[in-house]
Structures are given as structure tokens and as C-alpha cells.
Amino acid sequence: MNTDIKNFIKGIVKENPTFVIMLGMCPTLAVTTQFINALSMGIGVIFVLLLSNIIISILKNLIPNSIRIPCYIVIISAFVTILEMLFHAFLPEVYNSLGVYLPLIVVNCIILGRAEAFASKNNVINSIFDALGMGLGFTLSLSFISLIREAIGNGTITLFPIGRWSGVIKIPILNNSPIRVLALPAGALLFMGYMKALFDYLSSKRKKI
């Protein structure tokens, strides 16, 4: 298979940042209470991951080894601040709903992890595909967790409001008697545990084959 496609696909299943590498757990557990928050967070991470991977890959030969981590953090935090300002100015609803987790993208382990493990050792094109794959893998995982948690834990699915429609889909039966623990932090850990077990089972099965 083409290396670019391999780099892209590995982030979605084989090296999924959330369920396999277990990176970025803090935002995963915190923002997956609503589908729209998870999706917005995912898009934010793709933006920062893509740009930081490109810049770090370009500058990899210029940055001395001893100061590589401070340099990566400066680059990543600059992109996060740009994203924060853009959201604040043009998407104030998303900015308000993500709250403190938007600036916390700076310390999201996926971004620093990919900068250190991939972008600093590979060329720009490979780094772009790695960032897109990892970012998409993270977004899909977050969206999946939030769909389950919000639907079962709250009986709703929150999307973007369009015109007069508030963007909230109410699920019959579950809306009146939701299993509230899933919407709470303990439910997030419980659900993540089951998902990790499932991914481990699938990967062990693949190894046997």
C-alpha cells in the first residue's frame, strides 16, 4: 500500500490515538458529554495538529535537539492561540461551549506526541497524512463516545443550531429516563474501559491471524 495512505489510515484504526495509543484522555473524557462539543474539539485538534506537524517537519533540521520540546510547545501554543482567537471572533457559540478545553489543546498529548514521534523524523508530505489520519481518528473516536454518552446519558443528540431549530434531537423514552451515569465523569471512564477492552480484543485477534 502507498506510504501516504498507510500513514493516513493507521491513525483511524490500527494506531487510533484514543482507543489504542490512549493519548489525549483529558479532553476525551471531558468534552464528550455533547456531540457538538466533541466534533468542535476534533476539528480544532485537526487544525492545530496539521499546521504544527507541517511547521515542525519543515524546521526539523534547524531546531537543535536540546531545545526541541520548548520549540514544539511554542509552535503548538501559537497555533492554539490563533484557533482560540478565530473561534472567539467567528464562532462565538463554539468558543463558549468548549470553554477551558480550547486553550488546553496546547497540552494535548496527541499533538506533542505526533510532533516528537513523527513530524520531527519525517518529511512534510508524510507528516500531513499522519496529522490528517491521527486528527480524523481522534475526531471519530470523540464523536462516537459523545454520541453514545449523550444519547444514553441525556436522551439527546446536540448538533449545530440552524435557523429556528435549536439543534437538539430528543430521543424518545431515553429523554424521559436517561441512564445519567454515562453523562457523568464516572460514566466516561466506564465507557472508555469497555472500548479499550474491545480494541484490545480486536487487535489480539488480528495478531493471531
Binding site: 458529554t33 455533547q34 462539543n37 463558549n96 461551549s97 468548549l98 470553554g99 477551558v100 449523550e150 453523562a183
Partner: peptide, 11 residues
């Protein structure tokens, strides 16, 4: 007007 509460919980 403004808050920094946890999405889905304090928010």
C-alpha cells in the same frame, strides 16, 4: 454572560 464551566456539566 460568561463562564468557564465544564462542558456538559457546569455549562
Amino acid at each position: 454572560i460568561s463562564n468557564s464551566e465544564t462542558p456538559g456539566v457546569g455549562k
